[in-house]
Every structure is written in structure tokens, then in C-alpha cells.
Design a protein around this nucleic acid. Structure first.
Lengths: 165, 165
DNA sequence: CAAATATACGTAGTTGGCTACGCTTCCGCA
DNA sequence: TGCGGAAGCGTAGCCAACTACGTATATTTG
């Protein structure tokens, strides 16, 4: 057993990141095994476009919870892959409206079974005493109310005030 | 409610990463608030050196679960901060032995109360129906036995074999 | 004991997200 | 109605991990 696993909560960020990386890499392998040329990082954009049809850059970013520059980078890649197309919004010249191409739509339907396989596998993996997905949901909800740093500083001052003058 | 939150498990990697990033950034703020110039990413290295005394580069990497190049980058930063020092192993000229400096040891004891505060805060945050730390422990254990991709491909072939000719 | 293999470390370049900043277009209000 | 702030998009550059590859020393083996 290595030390970091015992260091516990202080290395939580590190461990989350490691786990994320591990799953992402295996995701690539699974797509590849099904003969599909698709990167897991594209999933959020493709999925939201599949569900909502036509969206602007900022709308996509907001839906998938990314910043808009990150989203733009993804969109560039997807456009190069000819999975999406975009054009100006006629009623609002600032906006770029994005939608799936035919190739994109075909890919989505081809990926259906793979997604279903992944979902079943992840469900199997995370079906432990403490369910990882639900734990993430819960922690995200807690943090949305008040962040980590804010809570810590609050807890600090509370402790200090234990013995008020 | 945005779509990605519903897409559920398929975006698990993305969500883990986001959470990790969020916690790391707030970690910086907490150290800063205590007047300590320390980056959360340094924690694993410093902590393992604090616990084990003297280690080589590869030993540290293995202990903290990083690749050795990542570890080397961290070591360079820590050496610049004069928190660690290193020298050649006399019995094995390939090895570099790393240890904390006096400044490093002082910093560790100065950070004690901060770590304790962080531990209490994270415990508070993750003390939900599904405990995040325990969920990570459990999933890591499951994945160690057999990875995500391996499980998926296995599940696939099992399903296919349902109707053997 | 020399050659092949393995181990330890280092460098270079990639990746997938981010922030900071700037430009254009839109809209509300004086 | 025109102008100042807001909204949408884009670029540049950062960050913290990674992989791929190279070099030097150690170890194993024919």
C-alpha cells in the first residue's frame, strides 16, 4: 500500500484526477475496439447537439459546463472531423449556430450500442457501498451552496472564536 | 438542469476532473489565507518525503502514483523552493536520493494546522449519503482487479455469445 | 566476462482543461 | 436615437498531468 492512499482526503484532488484520466483513456480503447474513431472528450458536445439540435457556442458551453474557450477548441476539432457544421445566426450576428452534420448523426447512431455498453460497465464498476456517481452529485450540490475554501475559512474563524474575549 | 448532468455516467471522467480542479484551486486559496506559499500539487511529494525520509525519484513516483517525468517536474519546483535537496546514491550511481531540507521540515510543521483544517472541511463536505472518499477507494479497488476497458470488452463478448449458433 | 537486458533518470513534446483579454454586435435608457 | 454596458465569440498563453524516447548505469546470462 503506498503512502498517498493513506494520506486520505488531502490528496483527494489528485486521486479524482487520476481516476478521471484512467477512465478517459480506457474510453478511447473501448471506442477503438468497436472500430469507432471518437474521443471521449467530444462526448459532451456531440451529445448535447444530438439532444438539442441547434445551439450557439455559449449555449453549448453552458450546457456541458465548460468555459467557452474550451468549447471552441472542441468545436474546431469536431468541425475538422466534419461531425458538426456552423453558420451565423441571421437575427443575431454575434452568434454562431452549431449543428450535427449527416456524418455526425450517423456516428451518433453507430455509437449508441457503445454508450449503452459503457453505461452498463460503469454501473457495474461504481455499484459499490458508496456509489461514486451519486457521491459526485452530492458533493457538487454541497459545493454549489458554498465552496471548499469558503467553508474552510469559516471553520477556522469559528474555531478561533471558541474563546471570545 | 443541463443535459450533461443527465447524460450521467458517460461524462463521469469530465465531472471527476472538474471536481478535482475546483478543489485544487480552493486549496491554493486556503494555504494563501494562512500565509503559506504552497501549492496543493506539491502535497504528495512533500508528504511522502515527510513520512519516509529519503527516497529516489522512481520510488517517490511509485509512492505517489505519478509517472516519473511528472515527479521530476515537481521535484525541480520543490528544489527551486529549497524545500528538498538531492544527491547521488553512492552504491547505485543511477539513483538520485531526495530528502526534505530544514526549510522543508519547518514548512511541514507549519502546515500541520492547515492540513487538519482541510481534513475537517473535506470530511464535512463529503459526509453525504454516498461518501466520496470511500467511493473512490472502492472504485479504485474494483478497477485494480480489472480495468474499465477490459470489463467493457468482456461484457460485450458475453452479450454476443448469448445466441451461440 | 562480454553482451543483452533491465532499471533509473532526464528531456521534449502532447493533452485537455483553464484564465485573461480584446473585438464585435446588441440592447436599454437618458 | 445614440451611446455605454452587456453578451457572444475568438485568440493567446498557462497548467498539471501525460507518453515517447534517449542516455547512463546495473544486473543477468550464455
Amino acid at each position: 500500500m503506498n503512502v498517498i492512499d493513506n494520506a486520505g482526503v488531502l490528496a483527494i484532488s489528485t486521486r479524482l484526477q487520476r481516476l478521471a484520466e484512467q477512465l478517459r483513456k480506457d474510453g478511447v480503447l473501448i471506442y477503438k475496439d468497436h472500430g469507432i474513431d471518437f474521443e471521449p472528450k467530444w462526448f459532451p458536445v456531440i451529445f448535447v447537439l444530438h439532444n438539442k439540435g441547434v445551439l450557439s457556442v455559449v449555449e453549448i458551453a453552458s450546457e456541458i459546463g465548460y468555459t467557452h474557450p474550451s468549447t471552441i477548441t472542441l468545436l474546431k476539432e469536431l468541425e475538422k472531423e466534419k461531425l458538426i457544421k456552423s453558420g451565423r445566426d441571421k437575427t443575431d450576428e454575434r452568434k454562431r449556430l452549431i449543428h450535427l452534420t449527416e456524418k455526425g448523426k450517423e456516428l451518433v447512431s453507430k455509437m449508441g450500442p457503445v454508450w449503452s455498453l459503457m453505461i452498463r460497465t460503469i454501473t457495474e464498476i461504481t455499484n459499490t457501498t458508496n456509489n461514486l456517481m451519486r457521491a459526485i452529485d452530492e458533493v457538487e450540490a454541497v459545493l454549489q451552496k458554498k465552496g471548499f475554501a469558503e467553508r474552510a475559512l469559516e471553520l477556522k474563524s469559528k474555531t478561533k472564536k471558541k474563546k471570545p474575549e
